[in-house]
Structures are given as C-alpha cells and as structure tokens.
C-alpha cells in the first residue's frame, strides 16, 4: 500500500489544512505521527492495515447497531410501573411533548447519522478491500468527511450516565442489554475512526479510478 503513497501526489507537496504551510509530505511508518511544524496540527497517523481494519470494524459496528437500537437500554420502576427506554423512544417522547425540532436533532445525531456513517465506511472500505472501483466512492468519502462531526454517540453515552445518576435518586434502575450493545458500538466506532486513514483512502480511490480508466 505504501507504493501508492509516493506515486500519487502530482505536486510532490502538501499543505497544512489549518495554517496553510507548504510542506514536503513525510512518509511516516504505521504508528508514527506527523505534526505540522508551524501550528502543531496532527497531519497524518498511518495505521497498519487501515483498509482491512476499517472494513472489519464497519461490519462489526453495523451488526451491533441493531441490538443497540432495539433492545431496552435502561429500565425504571416506580410504584410497580416499569418503563424501559431505547434510543428511538426518547425521540418519540420529545416529539409528543411538542419539541419537534429537538426530537429531530436527537434522532439525527444519535441514530441516523451514526447509521449512515457506518454504512458509508462499510461501502468504502469494502470497495477498497476488494479493489472494486465505483464512481460513487468519491461522493461517499466526502459525505463521510462532513458527517464525522455530527455522529454523537459518545456524547449520548455521557447523557445516559448523567440521566442515570439523576434517576437513581428517584427509583431503582435496571440496565438492559441494549446499553451494553451501545457501549460496544461506541468502542467500535472509536476504533473505526482511529483506524481510518483519510490520506491513504483518498490515494487508494484515485489509484482505483486510474486503473479502471486504463483497463477500459
């Protein structure tokens, strides 16, 4: 995979995205980090087997997404009445309270965007893993890049912790399998983000496109 790194960039230069310093691209080995000498931004951190790992983690995340969303996460019992919550039921409760805008935001940040993000990384890494060119690869990469910031699973987890602390004062809580699946999903998505090497992915996509052009 490192063969591609040298051949691809037509300018042989690189620029820091935050301070615009013109740089000679470094060729870091997996595990090394390259920082911008002027502003200190982490420029690249290549990973071993980035494509393979991303592919595997995307599959795992995709599978875990369903129990995390469908099984009860937290249960609360007051005076013999039991209530259990899942991700979507919080959205519905907000919606029924007349907080449509907030409900939509919660739905997007905790359910739809994480799912779309997982699907995109599954599609991209799958295509790269099997060396299949696809004209939508570029669009998928761009969408994933823009979605990154709006996937807020780990923030939701903190929300669950704070809510649980507040609720413990009212009544006994029961943690369900959905919560464990959700925690596992967060660990998977965190590993996924750190294993996904943007630079390498873009280079591989361009490489695939050129090979495809030459073949046809």
């Amino acid at each position: 995979m490192h063969l591609f790194t040298k051949a691809m960039n037509n300018t042989n230069y690189d620029a820091c995205p935050e301070c615009d310093l013109l740089l000679k691209p470094a060729q870091p080995k997996p595990g090394e980090k390259v920082h911008c000498p002027r502003c200190g931004l982490l420029l690249s951190r290549p990973r071993k087997q980035s494509v393979e790992r991303t592919f595997a983690l995307s599959i795992a995340g995709f599978i875990l997404f369903f129990p995390a969303n469908l099984l009860p996460m937290v249960g609360l019992t007051v005076l013999g009445n039991a209530n259990t919550g899942i991700l979507i039921s919080g959205v519905i409760a907000l919606y029924n309270d007349g907080m449509e805008a907030v409900a939509i935001v919660v739905f997007l940040a905790s359910i739809l965007f994480p799912l779309v993000h997982l699907c995109l990384s599954l599609l991209i890494s799958g295509h790269l893993y099997f060396n299949r060119p696809n004209r939508y690869l570029v669009a998928w990469m761009r969408w994933m890049h823009h979605l990154d910031e709006w996937v807020m699973l780990e923030v939701y987890m903190l929300g669950i912790i704070v809510a649980c602390v507040k609720l413990m004062a009212i009544a006994p809580l029961k943690l369900g399998w959905g919560l464990y699946a959700f925690i596992a999903l967060i660990i998977i998505t965190t590993l996924l983000t750190s294993s996904l090497d943007n630079r390498l992915f873009w280079q591989r996509i361009e490489q695939l496109r050129k090979e495809n052009k030459n073949a046809s």
Binding site: N83, S89, G90, A93, V102, S110, M152, G159, I160
Partner: peptide, 12 residues
C-alpha cells in the same frame, strides 16, 4: 439535550 430526551422518555 440527550439527557433530557432520556429523562422525558423514562419518567412518565
């Protein structure tokens, strides 16, 4: 916001 969505859902 997430905390409120959980509280609204569970405490009813």
């Amino acid at each position: 916001i997430f905390m409120i969505s959980i509280l609204v859902d569970l405490v009813d």
